[in-house]
Design a protein around this nucleic acid. Structure first.
Length: 471
RNA sequence: UCCCUUGUAGCUCAGUCGGCAGAGCAACGGACUGUUAAUCCGUGUGUCGGUGGUUCGAGCCCACCCGGGGGAGCCA
């Protein structure tokens, strides 16, 4: 058989509004066998999936095919095939169209004795060990398409809103970002480190000083916001913390918009529009995948997301949140009082029990937040905001930034930060300073929220966690 | 990093009081069938995570190590 260059994605073959034009005509599809069911009526049914959609295409393979005995009857789960055939209306239930094969070329067999993914349910834990094969399953195919849609929506949303996509560095040569433990980047020989006065001599390293993988593009994002107006970053981020939870990764993807002349209310409104845009796009364009999550992963997730679209997000100050928690009558492991950071259990109560939906908390005590957040007139709180959603917790963290040089210097001194390490960041306040604000959204947490997937390791293709960098 | 839990067939798990290693699913063989996670009958499957110890005898008891999962902290 000669290989043609024109084959049709199964997502289109299964879409009646598109596929009608191919009815009765010869078409070609390419993909992987999900199941084979033989009939003594003189043919076999093949379910073919090519990743383009959740559903499979049913192919009827008649025993008149030259290689029916030799190839078709040996097709097992995971085999790859190129199939030519005629699209017909299906007499069976469960699909409106099917393909009657006129030629089947097997491009690769998958030995059923050794191919791990057989026609049965596997646990997500086991599938993590087969990260190279798990995208071939229903769940991970659906997660992959939703993740893609969220990424696409991100660019669409910010571009539509006039934000520029900025590529902030992955390697950062300053160790002063303070957002968590960092991975060291070095070309120094680890078995023979140059030592000077009892310490590693980093002047001999590649960059002439210590270098790390970025924990946030925010500071660089502020630089560009203070020139381009509105910008966003979208890239990988690294945290070397020894976190072992269902919502932390050592390598994750973060979206960080930053906008000049934005104050906290603008920032909150932006976050709400952005989240709703992503949810709407997923419900519309990944309807079949979302239906699967609703049925098999988290019953009710579609309706919940629909309700989120329909009403404005709740806003609640930190102070009010503390009052709510104190009045709740709940027994918390960690006691609540004004000034204490909110724990997971507190956030969960607020978003899952009290509000029952997304909630934006704002105006946190200055003492528990970063130095760059703008001080309120009460001198006790800062213009910080966290967006909490049920099931996931904190999905967005952001703030209005301190644009006043003298105030920022005071806060840095109070936090023991050295001016010279931040000279360029401070220059933004020296020359043409403007109020500005931004936030960070963890893409994986958004995927979790939309799909209902419980473990963050199952919403990124190749999860990096402490002790695990296979694949 | 701390607490809890777990590791037995390709996968999911059972294994009582320390006494010959078990089931379901998948796979394979057959029957049946425009089938839909098809159905029915039959067949095979082991470094019991590793090392050491206790014992006549260890999947089971003890010690240490390694891996998985959940919760907490840190955060997105």
């Amino acid at each position: 058989m000669t290989i043609s260059n024109e084959w049709i994605p199964i997502v289109q073959v299964r879409d009646a509004s598109i596929a009608t034009k191919w009815l009765g005509k010869a078409i070609e599809v390419r993909g992987w066998v999900r199941t084979r069911r033989d009939s003594k009526g003189g043919f076999s049914f093949l379910e073919i999936n090519d990743g383009s959609s959740f559903g499979n295409l049913q192919v009827v393979a008649p025993n008149a095919l030259a290689n029916y005995e030799s190839d078709v009857l040996n097709l097992s789960v995971g085999s790859s095939v190129i199939i030519k055939g005629v699209l017909k209306e299906s007499p069976g239930e469960g699909q409106s169209f099917e393909m009657e094969a006129t030629a089947i070329q097997v491009t690769g067999h998958a030995d059923p004795q050794t191919y791990p993914l057989q026609k049965k349910r596997h646990t997500f834990e086991k599938l993590r060990e087969w990260a190279h094969l798990r995208p071939r399953t229903n769940t991970f195919g659906a997660v992959t398409r939703v993740r893609n849609r969220l990424s696409y929506s991100t660019h669409q949303f910010f571009q539509d809103e006039g934000f520029f996509y900025i590529h902030t560095p992955i390697i950062t040569a300053s160790d002063c970002e303070g957002a968590g433990q960092m991975f060291r980047v070095t070309t120094l020989p680890l078995d023979k480190l140059p030592i000077k006065e009892g310490k590693v001599d980093s002047s001999q390293d590649f960059f002439g000083k210590p270098a790390f993988l970025t924990v946030s593009g925010q500071l660089e994002g502020e630089v560009y916001a203070c020139a381009m107006g509105k910008i966003y970053t979208f890239g990988p981020t690294f945290r070397a913390e020894n976190s072992n939870t269902t919502r932390h990764l050592a390598e994750f993807w973060m979206i960080e918009p930053e906008a000049a002349f934005y104050e906290l209310p603008d920032n909150m409104a932006l976050a709400e529009r952005y989240l709703k845009r992503m949810i709407r796009d997923c419900l519309q364009d990944c309807a079949e995948d979302m239906e699967f999550f609703d049925k098999m992963i988290q019953p009710g997730v579609v309706e919940t997301l629909q309700l989120v679209l329909d009403k404005p997000f709740e806003h609640m100050s930190y102070t009010k949140a503390v009052e709510v928690l104190l009045a709740s009558g709940q027994k918390f492991e960690y006691p609540v009082h004004w000034g204490a950071d909110l724990q997971s259990e507190h956030e969960r109560y607020l978003t899952e029990t009290y509000i029952k939906g997304p909630v934006i908390l704002y105006d946190y005590p200055a003492a528990i937040k970063s130095f760059y957040m703008r001080i309120n007139d009460d001198q006790k709180t800062v213009r910080a905001m966290d967006v909490l959603v049920p099931g996931v917790g904190e999905i967005i963290g952001g703030s209005q930034r301190e644009e006043r040089l003298d105030v920022l210097l005071e806060r840095m001194a109070a936090n023991g930060l050295k001016e010279e390490d931040y000279w360029w960041y401070l220059d933004l306040r020296r020359f043409g300073s403007v109020p500005h604000a931004g936030f960070g959204l963890g893409l994986e947490r958004m995927v979790q929220y939309v799909t209902g997937m419980v473990n963050i390791r199952d919403v990124i293709p190749f999860p990096r966690t402490p002790g695990n960098a296979e694949f």
